[in-house]
Write a protein that binds this DNA or RNA. Sequence first.
DNA 1: GCAAAAGTGTTATCATTACACCCATGG
DNA 2: CCATGGGTGTAATGATAACACTTTTGC
Lengths: 229, 229
Amino acid sequence: MEELKYHYKYPHPSVTTDCVVFGYDGLRLNVLLIERGADPFKGHWAFPGGFLNIDESAQQGAKRELFEETGLRDAYIHQFHTFSAVNRDPRERVISIAYYALVRISEVKGGDDAAKAQWFPLDSVPPLAFDHDMMLRMAIKELRRQIHFEPIGLELLPEKFTMTQLRHLYEAILNKKCNHRHFSTEMLKTGFLTQLNETKAANNKATSLYRFNREKYNQMTKNGFHLDL
Amino acid sequence: MEELKYHYKYPHPSVTTDCVVFGYDGLRLNVLLIERGADPFKGHWAFPGGFLNIDESAQQGAKRELFEETGLRDAYIHQFHTFSAVNRDPRERVISIAYYALVRISEVKGGDDAAKAQWFPLDSVPPLAFDHDMMLRMAIKELRRQIHFEPIGLELLPEKFTMTQLRHLYEAILNKKCNHRHFSTEMLKTGFLTQLNETKAANNKATSLYRFNREKYNQMTKNGFHLDL
DNA sequence: GCAAAAGTGTTATCATTACACCCATGG
DNA sequence: CCATGGGTGTAATGATAACACTTTTGC
């Protein structure tokens, strides 16, 4: 047995970060799951995560775990809840600070370790390990709230996109249809979209392409705004 | 020196809960602060809080701390963020799971301990200890978001109240005027208000009194709804 | 009696939706 | 050449706000 080095008068919990990684495939919202190779919950699916180092903040820890699993360095992440039920891990007392990330599925590489990772559409997620079912429900709830107060999309859509693509993303996240006239006017008046001169001759007449105005986008992420959908 | 009992191979952080207690006095939103009696930050004001026991969840810990400080057993509390910057406490690595509570100022008794506690209106809060300034900003931001998705007021208003009182509460929280016609129709159509036969002959002609419909209120707290203000 | 607080009637403006129609592409 | 997936014009409906006016109380 290894030497035990750190001594406390009162017991301290272990602290982990977990990351619900949302990816958009242009049609549906997906989550990235890892198949556990060891007990407890061996063979079950779970979110990527791991122990927090003593010299890193939770955000740094979550980004490190995300990088190890997806190869993404600067993804957008957002802390949404800390899970602390006494028996949530059968081995020992573990508190998990949970984040969600928004990424483009196409940019994700396989993880460092040989862990099996796989994307699942939101309506086909298998039963998860630990309290990760609740974790997923709360992540979705928080994402659906956040969409009313911060811009979303820069991390999920290609560089250039049509208004319809942006609406489809919002519809996938909110799981409801949005009126396209209203959606378009609301989006344009936020000011974080730049209309390009280019158009896309897709399956219909020339359609305008848009790009995110990063400066305005970041400012609105920081200061917040209010969107009625 | 006391005997040290708990041994870990890797260092574990300490975990605390802190509670931003919001109280409404019928006019403004206030927060409850404790004057620190010992270093670090001796003499500075801070939110009530303390170490999490190994056999309680964060929610139980926050409620325990709240009870010790206010005498309130069943206040409404809501977790809003976990603070984990490496040097947020100068003594050791401390992670704080932060909640806010909504209480009636009139029901708060002095705390168990001799700690000096005092209510401060939101626009007169002194500089706070640790990272509690940021904590307060984030608590207010989250409360202002939450008000769009869950009913608020049962914990802050008297049993019976007028529509104007309810609107004043919302205006105090959102820090902006609400159109009184619109406010009234929006509130009534949520269904969590019950109009009483009684009226209040206050400073004007007879005004209807309302009560919260607890069943509907709790259901909407749980399932969420959407309110545009 | 008058100022202040709060409710009501009327109307103007704007947001939102519904419906019908048009256009360009891909088979 | 037609079905499909969007886009647009017009108009109805409903939400929101502004303004003037009323009621009652406290001073």
